[in-house]
Nucleic acid binder design. Structure first.
Lengths: 198, 198
DNA sequence: GGTTACTAGATGACTGGTCATATATATTTA
DNA sequence: TAAATATATATGACCAGTCATCTAGTAACC
């Protein structure tokens, strides 16, 4: 079907209203009804804008990554600072953003949906894996630069380093959500700065 | 209500049969029907053995931690080895156990349920937080010993170190599940051994 | 008889998804 | 220009099935 601009705008509106519910309540905890009610749109319209609830989740994730990563990416690529400094600012930036989310109670949307659905929806799993790997790629480049500049040690490969930092961040977000406290994220940053990126 | 031995045995049987479903499909993805069907127990009986689905999840988590942590704890307290060696063996042991779970597709039950339900069930959140903090306490003691023995550096507090390692582990399990690969766990151990516990 | 252990079946609200139908907006034709 | 046609969008009633939970009862034992 041909998608008009108007079509896309309303689909975006549904995503805007529904994504936070999905983030908070998870895939199986969110009903299509919840989404359309939040947007004030009749039930029947949902399936005009999305193929299925699964399709809505995929587009929600894409939107989430776009919103969360884009501003942070600018920090990452801002060549006024040295590679290492850019990495630190980048992680600090992301972390503060996550801490701000509803008193540390919501965690990371991708982690939530990944943990819940990776085993049961290839669409959702693929969306998360492919976007995360693209983001990782961008960070890896900066780590390579930092290694070449001698700012951080070179015994570990950039992929190992970035994989570990990214994974540790996911876990910190999980614990943040469980304990409803920013400590895990602050502790995480402390390790990045003082132990990992050395 | 007075609980007989027989009563407890049958409740355990329901937990044994239902926990894996809960682990795999999550809280909202698992129905009471799924659980009783898996155990071959009449539907009406469920509420004779458990107060609610939420109660079942709490007891499932307690069972999960007991099964996963108990054997690992023996490694942790086996005083034949030095504190640092015990820590490394402990983490290696746990990691191999998690890698074995269904080709890396299931992740960690507590992370799954925590991410899904922490915001919506105080019972589930409290269960996870309190058990994890007890486990953390046991590990912290060994880190203290290792620091006193000069086996690992002392600039960081044992609580900081253990918090970070535990959180990083959760994230590694999340990525393991997303990517269906053991790499995140192996990379995690590599960092514990060569970067964190130094 | 009385107490406790257990369970079949029902409850009403809710699930993701479909459908026929209605209207609004473009596009084409005369 | 106006009329005719086609397409895009809107809508809520409606599936068949599932949800967590409860009630009212039977079965078992003392």
């Amino acid at each position: 079907m041909h998608k008009t601009l108007k079509h896309e705008a309303k689909a975006d509106y549904l995503l805007e209203k529904g994504s936070e519910i999905l983030w908070s309540r998870g895939y199986n905890g969110t009903s299509v009804n919840d989404i359309v009610k939040a947007a004030g749109v009749p039930k029947g319209s949902f399936y005009f804008y999305f193929d299925s609830k699964e399709d809505f989740a995929v587009k929600s994730l894409e939107r989430y990554f776009a919103i969360m990563f884009k501003p942070a990416a600018e920090v990452l690529h801002n060549t006024d600072a040295s590679p290492k400094q850019r990495l630190l600012t980048f992680y600090r930036f992301r972390l503060e953003k996550m801490k701000g989310e509803h008193e540390c109670t919501m965690g990371c949307m991708a982690c939530n949906l990944g943990n819940e659905m990776a085993e049961h929806s290839e669409q959702i799993r693929n969306t998360i894996v492919s976007i995360e790997s693209r983001i990782k790629g961008e960070i890896i480049k900066v780590v390579e630069e930092a290694q070449q500049a001698g700012e951080i040690r070179s015994q570990l490969s950039p992929n190992q380093i970035v994989s570990f930092i990214e994974d540790a961040g996911k876990g910190a977000l999980t614990t943040m959500k469980e304990t409803q406290s920013p400590f895990p994220l602050d502790n995480y940053y402390h390790f990045i700065e003082n132990v990992i990126l050395k």
